[in-house]
Design a protein around this nucleic acid. Sequence first.
RNA 1: GGUGAAGUAGCUCAGUGGUAGAGCAGUGGAAUCAUAAUCCAUUGGUCGGGGGUUCAAAUCCCUCCUUCACUACCA
Length: 689
Amino acid sequence: MSCKYTITSGLPYANGPLHIGHIAGAYLPADIYTRVRKLSGDDAIYICGTDEYGVPITITAEKEDVSPRVIVKRYHQEIKEGFKNLNIQFDNFSGTSNLHNKHHAALAREFFTELKKNDYISSKIDDQLHCKECDRFLADRYVEGTCPKCGNDEARGDECSVCNAQYTVMELGSPKCKLCSNGTLSKVPTKHWYLKLDVLQAKLEEWIDSKDYWKENVVNFVKGWFKDGLRERAITRDLHWGVPVPLNDAAGKVLYVWFDAPIGYISSTIEWAEKQGDKDKWKEYWQNPDAKIVHFIGKDNIPFHSIIWPAMLIGQKKDYQLPWHIPANEYLNIGIDGEEGAKASTSKGNVVWVNDYCKHFAADYLRYYLALNAPEKSDFTFTWKDLQARCNNELLGVLGNLANRVLKFIGSNFEGVIPTPEDLDARDNEVLEKIQHSVAKVTKSYDNFEVRQAVAEVVNLGRVGNQYFDEKAPWKTAKSDRKVCGNTLYVTAQLVHKIVLLLTPVIPESCDKLWKQLGYENGISSWDELQKDLPAGQKIHKPQGVFSKIEDKVIQQMEENLRNASQTEQEQPKVELVPLKEDKISYDQFSALDIRMGKVLEAEKVAKTKKLLHLKVDIGHEVRQIIAGLAEHYTPEELIGKTVPVLVNLEPAKIRGLVSEGMVLCADIDGQAITLHPGKKVCPGATVR
RNA sequence: GGUGAAGUAGCUCAGUGGUAGAGCAGUGGAAUCAUAAUCCAUUGGUCGGGGGUUCAAAUCCCUCCUUCACUACCA
């Protein structure tokens, strides 16, 4: 029976390019699932677009001194390109700003208005910082001031870069605007609106309870939130880059980016409907109880899709359907074969960019490898060597070789015509049954979002084919017994036929080529073919190798690139020059500081902490106990015996129950502490002036 | 320290109560239809440690250790 499916993947944020982690978690599984649904005769649409509002984009824009539109346009293009190169096919790919979608803002406003009408939105007025020069309210990250805890003058809005204290921006001393650098900030009351999630909790819990078929990790996560109790959540911000809040008293305010982003799924569908020439058609996919809505996301996106987004939909009191399934995936890590601890991290440059990949390899290799290793239940570690091995051994060795040897054999011994089976023996029938069994297993796995199992089973089928072919040795029977030989080729041709069909959602391009080699004129359009045989008597086309071997040289090059990327990032950290302090201090203030050279006598990690070292430092007059946050940068052994400057008259403080009587002074390279050592020998207790 | 996830063969991973698995890598063989692609055989594991429940535990319970992600500790 045919069903309707509305399939989406988390909207990629238009502030950077795609890497293969994105693909493995959210886009490839969705693309494969959509293809499966369509092949099965379901009415499925795959909807996506870039997420184009919010603060990070405005920051990038300001760094480059361009409008946010320029940034959005650039990355929208780049991301779209990446998807196209990897054959990720959307029915519609839009974007949330009016640059790409003229329906989005209106729909987002409607969502807000409706929630407000139904009393799911509250508002309150709080003080926020306002810059007179720029004439605007400032988001936390645009504010700089004095840390309320450590007195650091360059503390960020919500967190101090020196002592890492967290606070609200209101606690910051003498706050300044980072944008115009001399703007004086004043606290001005401003109104914001909140989604009353607490009111919706009971309904959400009831809904989640019906999801016994969801993945455990998703359900557990959501239940954790319920346990703590849902809280109101701000859905507006003082910002210009976003959807304006549709209220009279909301000038200069926009909807928070996470509020409008999921609405992008619907607005993109509206755009699609319009292109179809039936502008109300989107309702069949969002307001129809028979439509199954599936959101593919990475695990970081679980709270938004399984709590906040459904809450927004419930609050509409319209016919919106809640998600049917949210198959959240785990993460992809990047490793280098034979080297340790290389975990994926964009900031370390330890990342494989989609557009880089596509310069060197065909889409199907990555699609195959990521489908086979989809991070469905746990994180997965990608390595280039493994990709090479899998593609060469399985894609080329098992599957490609099977297709090639069978088709070539039919070409040279049966004039390129599929032989007619005659008196099949027990072994032949056994293989034919195995094919049916695998077809059932694979389609079921696809239906259950178990792509890796589906792919593994197809490869298995390929192995069975090679085994059978070797066993039957048709190159011998071709001379001795043509009937048996024909049967063998008939059976293996059926195997190839089914393998090609089953793998087409994963590697569509290659399967399409093979399909045509099997003698079909048109591409694969339906899995009805799975129930049919490759007809005896069909004339095949001349086979050509579809997969080529991935050479060591290219893989070594890719590994080298990866290694270089992570090293340059690690060894040459970009230091953003912190602006000079403008406030002058008196000599008296300076001389109030008692800084001495101290020799580290003992050092050990404070138990059960990551960053803290327990130091005993000889400062001449006495030995001080100092607790320093250096454990991530230095081992105790590296510090023992070193002479370093110490601020000794800082008032003692208790850290994790231990009294710290001073502070080791270090250079700060983007949070990395670097110890300072005197150029000549200095005895402990020497003053520093 | 809190929360969550994980620890199974050299590597990447399956396996949720019933004789420890796959692929790759390693070793030994066979075959020559096929892009040297295949096939057969084989080496390799006190399933992180310890305790418990059970006739039976990789699997359930307790505890400890380690790793990862968020988070806390940075005077």
